[in-house]
Simulated scan of single mutants.
Amino acid sequence: MKRLRKWFIPALVILYLTGCSGTSQVTTPQPETNQGTQQAAESAGETERKTVYPLTITDATGNEITFEKAPERIVSTSPAETEILFALGLGENVVGVSDYDDYPAEALAKPKVGGVTSPNEEAILEQSPDLVIGGISMERPVAQKLQSLGLPVYITHPSSLDEIMQNILTVGIITDRQQQAEDVVAQMKADIKRVSDALQDIQADDQKKVYIEFAPGWTVGKGEYMDELIALAKGINIAGDTEGWNQISEEKVLLEDPDVILYADGVTDMTTGKSLDEIILNRSGWDKITAIQQSQVFGLDQNILSRPGPRITQGLIEVAKAVYPDRVK
């Protein structure tokens, strides 16, 4: 399998992950904040935690941003980050989104600032934002150009559920929505516990082999949150011996003979127009795979599966239901 790290994912694959959204394999640093914010975050005497400004944050690229106050005009160039902002109750503060942002429904009415890899700089500037937030989909030169224009650009690259939840908490600190962020993360942790409790007695020898295809010809190995979803759902990722996003080897999938095949529902090949399930079911020799013979091929909501935001643990529940339908209701 050919593997690719974050900054080298082809644009076509990024579109699948960002029309869905996009993350990959650069470790997200724990955000560095100023002492005042930390003291505020740790204060047990307040019913609702408040951020102390000025606030300095270091994003996943190592870029340091200082906020003098809570951002009031926010542009999001990533569907996942848009979902985070709305989940924190910041919908009215969102003044621009990417062309792919479709959740929640209110995001559809927001001004569009272009694509996810190279958003329109002029469209962003027209909104006079005091925060531009994006994920792996934003190309580095674009981020650097926006930074050179004096815009505070915060880039995220979460590769695990812990990093996704930490990212939500960090956005909560930046925007002075700490309590809302903690409430969102608490629900996500409850989702994880629900799956863990339901599957806790499954032994290693009884775990099912799982193959996941999120875009035509592409799967995922260790070091990414999709692989973690499979592991938390007590599945064995047949691509788990690789790292990052990988072009599949059809022969390897045949050899591994997965018990369950998962795919991103609604995805179509941009060249042939064929749906992803049609592609999977009609590959040469794949009719011999156990998952196909036993009708254990399941499409999962592409956005929930691919967006590293508040709904990713709903994706975990859906993965667990597909792998062990008798245990996770």
Rank of each mutant, 00 (worst) to 15 (best):
K6Y: 08
K6D: 02
V13W: 13
L17R: 08
G22V: 11
S24K: 06
V26T: 10
T27I: 07
P29L: 05
Q35A: 09
G36V: 02
A41C: 03
S43P: 01
G45V: 00
T47V: 07
E48T: 12
R49H: 15
V52N: 13
V52P: 01
V52D: 05
Y53P: 02
L55K: 08
D59P: 12
T61W: 02
P71T: 04
I74Y: 13
S76F: 10
T77E: 09
P79M: 09
L85M: 08
G89E: 04
V94E: 07
G96N: 01
S98E: 01
Y100F: 14
D102K: 15
K112C: 03
K112N: 10
V113K: 07
T117F: 04
T117C: 00
T117I: 05
P119F: 08
I133A: 14
G134A: 11
I136S: 14
L146W: 08
Q147W: 09
S148R: 10
L151N: 11
L151Q: 14
Y154M: 02
H157Q: 06
P158S: 03
L161D: 06
E163S: 06
N167M: 15
I168F: 14
T170A: 10
T175L: 06
Q180F: 05
D183G: 11
M188A: 04
R194P: 00
V195H: 09
D197F: 06
Q200V: 02
K208N: 01
I212N: 02
G217V: 09
W218E: 01
G221Q: 09
Y225M: 01
Y225G: 00
M226W: 13
D227N: 15
E228K: 11
I230K: 12
A233F: 15
K234D: 01
N237A: 04
Q247Y: 10
E250K: 13
V253M: 04
V253I: 15
P258R: 10
D259L: 03
D259Q: 13
Y263M: 01
D269R: 10
G273C: 07
K274E: 08
D277K: 15
D277S: 15
I279A: 00
S284C: 00
S284T: 15
G285F: 05
K288R: 10
A291L: 02
A291Y: 11
Q294E: 11
Q296D: 03
Q296E: 11
V297M: 14
F298C: 00
F298S: 01
D301I: 05
L316P: 07
A320R: 11
A320W: 13
A322S: 15
D326E: 15
R327S: 01
K329S: 07
K329R: 12
